[in-house]
Design a protein around this nucleic acid. Sequence first.
DNA 1: GCAATATACTAGGACATCCAACCGTTTGGA
DNA 2: TCCAAACGGTTGGATGTCCTAGTATATTGC
Lengths: 169, 169
Amino acid sequence: MGNPLPRDPIADAQRNWERHGWGDVAAPMAAITAIMRTQQILVARIEGVLKPFGLTFARYELLALLSFARSGALPMNKASALLQVHPTSVTNAVDRLEKAALVVRSPHPTDGRTTLIELTSEGRTLSKRATTALNAEVFGQSGFGDDDVEHLIRILGSFRRDAGDFTDA
Amino acid sequence: MGNPLPRDPIADAQRNWERHGWGDVAAPMAAITAIMRTQQILVARIEGVLKPFGLTFARYELLALLSFARSGALPMNKASALLQVHPTSVTNAVDRLEKAALVVRSPHPTDGRTTLIELTSEGRTLSKRATTALNAEVFGQSGFGDDDVEHLIRILGSFRRDAGDFTDA
DNA sequence: GCAATATACTAGGACATCCAACCGTTTGGA
DNA sequence: TCCAAACGGTTGGATGTCCTAGTATATTGC
């Protein structure tokens, strides 16, 4: 999307904040902006790896989640909660995965409101292949040192807990 | 979008990775997933603060960028490069900001291909008010400790440089 | 000087995300 | 028992992001 800039635009923004008398919040602003940009870079890498499999990140996450469920099936609302996305986003992803024959919808045996999402065997196979690719091409070459990974997990874990994502640990 | 989960879903995913024999990349996977989720939480907070101003994050970023330009004007392509988003995303944002009378498009004096985006006085005022709100309600209460902020800036700065965002420092 | 190439922006399309509203199903209290 | 409230999912709409292609203007090279 472009060549490298001569200067770090986020460091520049931080300097602008300080120059305008907002020095007290300039550093957190820079950290937050850096998280945004890093996420953008990571999504682009991940989507690049998944494209040959005909998957997007959202659909991959759903497949991976199902592949870890004992039965290979989960209620929609459970998937929504675990992936921490809006229920309508799950509806959307399931629609497309179902069209691709990677999952099927089935009624819940006892609760008439609930729909179960179930992995097909093609879905399970594709999930495994995509995970192997991601492990090799993204997670295995994250660009973060071991210490940095530990720092990130700790710092962001605290943040997510404080934000109300979960209650344990 | 939901109540807190009893357990950290990302820590669970990391355990699943280890259980499947991918222990060598489980930690980076968890760190990357945590960045994704953190970004999502932060965007939601920011959009919540900006909504009363009739702004989205994308539009705010453009206004803020313009407000730091000496003349209050920038070429579209410059804005695209500094915000590190696709040119069509800038076109989209400018369309809406222009409709809201917060910016205006004007032709470049010497290069007929280039369009300048210029802040109106309403745009400048709104940008200032929105920034004040974000500083108070988001950046000033980020939930990151001072040390964490420094860690994040350093770790993510390295990452972004290695990813080709910029060349200096 | 003119053709070939590069640059700047926009139009249209595919996806994803969220919100608001709606429709069945289930649950719980009067 | 029965109806209101809660729950689970989908539909429709607004935004944003990217990609591909197309138009117009600049720049380069022969």
